[in-house]
Design a protein around this nucleic acid. Structure first.
Lengths: 224, 224
DNA sequence: AACGTTAGCCATACTTTGTACGATGAGTCA
DNA sequence: TGACTCATCGTACAAAGTATGGCTAACGTT
């Protein structure tokens, strides 16, 4: 009786499975996410999951969909540049929360509504600029390439959460002990910039985003 | 006796193992690359590999090193913009040949000489510009982010080898059957641009590279 | 109230993975 | 010849995904 409204004991559910999988992948990464560990995390036995999903790949598809749903659609009322920039920031933030998703976001062969809706909103905003389609195509490709690539690099940073503190530590261990004859530039760059207080790799994100959007804007002005 | 110069029967070798692994990964991808399949490919039994490598991870490290070695170092005699652009093109070409490498290029925790030498050459070129270090940091981060991200997207394209032909086919199967009410922009963009003759996703690479390098150049001019 | 039906959960088992351990056999030197 | 070295391999085990089919509890029907 009561609130479960059904006949289930553990209250399993496709949504609960995907949610649990995302949680667990955030914790331990994608490769160590196994069916058995996921089942443990959900308080059930491994084979129970297969009543709601058809395969592990099906779960991963669902996980990617969740990430896409976390990305803000561009605001159709805002100036295009703000809308695109905010959406890029939102994409980066989502990829930071879910770094395991970065390499697989665009490689799913069966795009669900989450993905299609997202791309439709993006395209609507871009088309609203009135730019020629070839420039829009470049804009989309280049902005997304930059954001995905930046997220990939951020994810590769040691303990990518708090940025600078850990990076200094890692630099000390890896770069500083190197031979000064062989790696003069690497050592100088590390000592005089990376290990300086206030350095934050993340600052390059806004810089790069500006470069890219400037480029689109200028090439549109040249053509249009 | 004769040419093998030693006591081995199959002529196994760490280099031969890594080379074979790269070949095989180029064919079938990284996940399906198993120790057993690699041993088959080399004409050897699985356990023989472990006399030259300490683990599968060790092999993967070596594979990443191979890819780094394929990337042209920037030409120290060329103008910086050409040197950086050529190196970016070379990186993209290597990642196109070895798409399995994209997500792991920057995430190895023990950088070998291949990786360090490459970064040293890059930094030397950048420092040669005389730009302030913060701008150099942005330049490196943004160019690499763009190239890695672009390669990631290219790798996600269906049958990413010959570019346009296959993309048109995939668009027909995935995008064209969609509801025109729900996905008007997606459909218009696909019909009027992606499926037009002459469209090639790869064209966005040079465009984006220009955007990024323009951005660095202009911000250096502003500061310096 | 009794019963068959079905939905949700799980135990077992098979295949494939990485790799630890120790055996095998070819070559070298005394 | 015999002892030694070392590249190669056979066997085996833990952990992965998942096919197959069994158990149990809740429901609709009479």
């Amino acid at each position: 009786m009561a609130s479960t409204g059904g006949r289930s004991r553990a209250g399993l559910d496709r949504d609960r499975i995907i949610d649990g999988a995302v949680e667990l992948a955030d914790d331990i990464g994608l490769d160590p996410l196994t069916i058995r560990r996921l089942a443990d995390h959900l308080g059930v036995r491994p084979m129970s999951l297969y009543h709601y999903v058809t395969s592990k790949d099906d779960i991963v598809d669902g996980m990617v969909g969740r990430v896409f749903d976390e990305i803000e659609r561009p605001d159709p009322t805002a100036p295009w540049r703000d809308a695109i920039a905010d959406r890029a920031r939102s994409l980066r933030a989502a990829l930071r929360r879910h770094p395991w998703a970065i390499p697989i976001m665009e490689s799913r062969r069966t795009p669900g509504a989450d993905i299609l809706d997202h791309h439709e909103a993006m395209l609507a905003t871009w088309i609203g600029t009135g730019f020629p389609l070839p420039i829009i195509a470049h804009g989309i490709a280049v902005v997304d390439a930059f954001v995905y690539g930046f997220a990939l690099q951020e994810a590769a940073l040691p303990f990518g959460d708090d940025a600078s503190g850990d990076l200094t530590e890692a630099s000390e261990q890896i770069v500083v002990p190197l031979s000064p004859e062989r790696y003069p530039s690497l050592l100088r760059f590390t000592a005089e910039h990376v290990m300086q207080p206030g350095y934050d790799f993340a600052d390059s994100f806004e810089a790069g985003l500006d470069f890219v959007l400037d480029g689109v804007e200028r090439s549109a002005a040249r053509t249009g």
